[in-house]
Computed example of a mutant assay.
Amino acid sequence: MHGYTSIAVGTDGSPTSLVAVRSAASLARAFDADLTVICAHYSANTSLLNTANGEQAKVDIVSVDDAKRVLEVAERIAKEEQAPRVNLQIKSGQPAQVMIDAAQEFGVDLIVVGNKGMRSLAGRVFGNIPGNVAKKAPVDVLLVDTRAEGHD
């Protein structure tokens, strides 16, 4: 029987990403797999955010403090789902690349991501985290349908 020994899931604390955490934790329990929950912290230049002033400054999208709070919530969810072993990680970088890199860094054989943004026009035109992970990951990717939870 095919199984997984190490599962990674990314979260930014949004309701949809926490649905993915719950699914990943449930799978970890079912497969007796290690679960790595990752929150990427990153900044964006103000020029990318269409600010009027000419200065380019970095604006935190997810700060390190935010990431710590997000992982506390994710850990509670993983415990509720009885994931046997949970590894919490804060990583610097763009979320999709952080998840792709996690496969090698943590020996992951399954990445779980929510599907938010995959059906939006902006997601199709500019790309989206789940789509980028699915295209570039060197391991299996499970896209969790977050619509069932009313979070699309």
Score class of each variant (00 low, 15 high):
residue 145 D to N: 15
residue 139 V to K: 13
residue 55 E to W: 14
residue 34 D to S: 08
residue 97 Q to C: 10
residue 20 A to G: 09
residue 124 R to F: 12
residue 123 G to A: 00
residue 12 D to I: 00
residue 44 A to L: 10
residue 147 R to C: 05
residue 142 L to M: 14
residue 24 A to D: 05
residue 124 R to S: 12
residue 58 K to I: 01
residue 95 P to D: 11
residue 48 L to M: 12
residue 110 L to W: 10
residue 107 G to I: 13
residue 49 L to S: 01
residue 121 L to N: 14
residue 130 P to V: 01
residue 41 H to N: 14
residue 48 L to H: 09
residue 137 A to C: 11
residue 128 N to H: 13
residue 138 P to F: 06
residue 99 M to P: 01
residue 61 I to S: 00
residue 128 N to Y: 01
residue 147 R to P: 02
residue 77 I to Y: 02
residue 4 Y to S: 07
residue 8 A to M: 09
residue 1 M to L: 01
residue 118 M to W: 04
residue 64 V to C: 08
residue 105 E to D: 08
residue 149 E to I: 04
residue 3 G to V: 09
residue 37 V to M: 08
residue 64 V to L: 12
residue 137 A to G: 03
residue 6 S to D: 10
residue 120 S to H: 14
residue 72 E to A: 09
residue 32 D to V: 02
residue 129 I to C: 00
residue 24 A to P: 11
residue 139 V to I: 14
residue 116 K to T: 10
residue 78 A to E: 03
residue 88 L to G: 07
residue 84 P to E: 04
residue 65 D to C: 01
residue 76 R to C: 00
residue 7 I to Q: 06
residue 63 S to H: 00
residue 143 L to T: 01
residue 9 V to P: 00
residue 118 M to V: 15
residue 7 I to P: 05
residue 22 R to Q: 07
residue 105 E to R: 12
residue 68 K to E: 14
residue 29 R to W: 04
residue 68 K to A: 07
residue 85 R to V: 08
residue 129 I to Y: 08
residue 45 N to I: 05
residue 146 T to F: 00
residue 142 L to K: 13
residue 73 V to R: 11
residue 62 V to Y: 03
residue 101 D to P: 03
residue 65 D to H: 12
residue 80 E to C: 03
residue 19 V to S: 02
residue 28 A to D: 06
residue 152 D to S: 14
residue 135 K to H: 07
residue 151 H to F: 08
residue 26 S to G: 13
residue 122 A to G: 13
residue 100 I to S: 11
residue 97 Q to P: 08
residue 61 I to A: 06
residue 5 T to M: 10
residue 145 D to H: 03
residue 52 A to I: 06
residue 113 V to S: 06
residue 152 D to E: 15
residue 129 I to P: 09
residue 104 Q to G: 14
residue 120 S to K: 13
residue 102 A to Q: 03
residue 101 D to C: 02
residue 7 I to F: 01
residue 68 K to S: 15
residue 54 G to C: 06
residue 6 S to N: 11
residue 20 A to Y: 02
residue 105 E to Q: 12
residue 110 L to P: 06
residue 127 G to R: 13
residue 152 D to R: 06
residue 127 G to M: 11
residue 14 S to T: 11
residue 55 E to K: 14
residue 14 S to P: 10
residue 43 S to V: 12
residue 123 G to K: 07
residue 106 F to Q: 11
residue 41 H to M: 03
residue 130 P to C: 03
residue 124 R to W: 06
residue 67 A to M: 11
residue 119 R to C: 05
residue 139 V to G: 06
